[in-house]
Design a protein around this nucleic acid. Structure first.
Lengths: 337, 337
DNA sequence: CTGTTAGCGCCTTCAG
DNA sequence: CTGAAGGCGCTAACAG
């Protein structure tokens, strides 16, 4: 492994000079500069990020903590986060930090937080809040992304969106299509709703329109949506539309409709929220509310990196709402029958 | 940030002693030992991984390089890889290293490889081989996972499976069900087949059975499978089965069948390869060949960590075939009509 | 402009 | 059993 010192010796200068040249600090004469560069080039010198990190107290990575990388939403988010991090010369450490019981693995996080990684980005959509505050060691720059209820977020800098509005948009869409019997399907973990704000936004709007909005809770997955919808579609009179608080649930609902012999969207409309890539790939393609995952990922990473650079940049409970949910009309919704 | 020295001062011992205590080296008296632990505990001491890495020349992370994290297969793999890494006290750095043109970003990899991360795990299913060998700096422990053609892998330690066999199993299954008009759908990037071995395995078997096996190439995605299948299903006589070299393609094919008004599996059987989670969640659920992603992820990570620990442990072109593909019968295949 | 001198936080000899 | 000393590779003052 060729080090700074190696090239210093060969180029006949001191380590500091090499460092200055390579980091374009400018304090160096053209000739030495050229010579140093040449040697570095020839030896294939690559600075050691660990050493740099140690020396200037700044880690070149950030840690992203989530509960399920296999979930398409999280993987989309991770993808965008990695790009955003890279744009600012950082690497992304992925930490699947949920223990089997769903709580955060504190010991594990403690090992990375603030040292190996300069800060922690927590994808919070389904983590307990008590948990959250204790998981990351005190003083480590932390940003919470995608927290469901912006109005009531934990005392951490938080980058998220207006999930209530997303719920409203979904409801508005169905109402505008003339639906009155609308079943609401909300994601939950055990008996705790994970999509509270979307649910509230949706049901509030439905109620305003005089439509009753009870909600069915289910595990947030295609299978969960399927199970719940199978039940809902047995009701008499049958709902003409299903509003799912997440795309996976919506996709499951469409499948259930298929099995019950109901045509989507003719006999049943289904709308989701999030706009994961799968929504567009389904047949019929799922109408959904786009929440602009990419911008949120960007903003979260940037907020975290800013916070790392300047620990007082953000108030401890700063809140940033990014983007505006927007309806993406596809093939799963139509005029009420 | 509390350091080794801090606790040394408070406990009234030297840094070395603290280190010895905390790493259970045993050379230390019970009393001092207890005292040191107590102080460390009280101060919430956490060793700095960067410093450790620098001191003992061993990074606590490995880098995983892939071309598309949003692809469900890769995210499954990443999930398992992260777990495997963690079991051996390492963190996982995700590197989306493909540049827009599909080649690897050498500069980017160079920055991590062998320093920030102790080694590199390349998920190779659709990277060019020339590219591959030059992307990672010489001498950096590297393992190639999921390379398609085990018989012809680049000169890197390689952990993969028998994709040919996977192709054969898929073909056998359809043949056993009495299908004779079988269309093969293979993933490609541009005009280069990405699933060569599966394709060969499948077509060889089909030919043995006297069934003609031309293949249609398409981009490996649901949309690609859909497009290709729409074309295939126009043929006269229509195929009674579609063998897709990847699940996404298979899922797309099922959708296409639906649009063409063909019942799956009654009028058209579809089989995929890989068994991503989505395969089980589709309706009808996709029959596919399970390749045991988890074991491969485990084995890859372990191979890489072994290689890092002992750079000569593996021959430069060591090959490890992990697991045995197995058919997972679900609802998308049935007796030929 | 360039070199010297201290560290960053930790680990590992090696004396005592 | 314990402490002192040196080094991992790099950066940041500070002299010259």
């Amino acid at each position: 492994m060729t080090t700074l010192r190696d090239i210093a010796l060969i180029a006949g200068v001191s380590g500091a000079t090499v460092s200055n040249v390579l980091r374009n600090r400018g304090f160096v004469g053209a000739e030495t500069s050229a010579r140093v560069r040449e040697v570095a080039q020839r030896l294939g010198y690559r600075p050691n990020p660990m050493a740099q990190a140690l020396a200037n107290g700044r880690a070149p990575t950030i840690a992203m903590v989530f509960s399920d990388l296999a979930n398409p939403f999280y993987s989309m988010f991770a993808l965008e986060a990695e790009r955003a991090a890279r744009r600012r010369d950082h690497f992304l450490l992925v930490c699947h930090a949920a223990k089997p019981d769903g709580t955060l693995d504190t010991a594990y996080l403690g090992a990375v937080a603030g040292r190996l990684s300069g800060g922690v980005l927590i994808l919070g959509s389904d983590l307990g809040r008590a948990d959250l505050l204790s998981a990351v060691p005190n003083g480590v720059p932390t940003v919470l992304a995608m927290w469901e209820d912006a109005a009531d977020h934990p005392s951490l800098p938080c980058v998220t969106l207006d999930f209530r509005e997303a719920g409203r948009l979904a409801a508005d869409h169905l109402l505008a299509l003339g639906h009155r019997r609308i079943a609401v399907l909300a994601g939950a973990r055990g008996d705790r709703v994970s999509h509270g704000a979307r649910l509230e936004g949706a049901t509030a709007r439905l109620r305003e329109a005089g439509v009753l909005g009870g909600a069915t809770l289910e595990e947030d997955s295609i299978g969960g949506g399927h199970r719940a919808a199978m039940r809902l579609l047995e009701a008499e009179p049958r709902p003409t539309a299903i509003l799912a608080t997440n795309d996976l649930l919506g996709i499951g609902a469409i499948q259930a409709a298929g099995e019950r012999g109901l045509a989507v969207p003719r006999e049943l409309s289904v709308v989701g929220i999030t706009d994961i890539w799968l929504a567009a790939e389904m047949r019929p393609a799922l109408t959904t509310v786009d929440i602009d995952t990419r911008r949120i990922a960007d903003a979260s990473v940037n907020a975290l990196l800013d916070l790392i650079a300047e620990p007082d940049a953000l108030a401890r409970d700063a809140l940033r709402i990014v983007g505006r949910p927007s309806l993406v009309r596809r093939a799963s919704t139509a005029q009420a029958p």
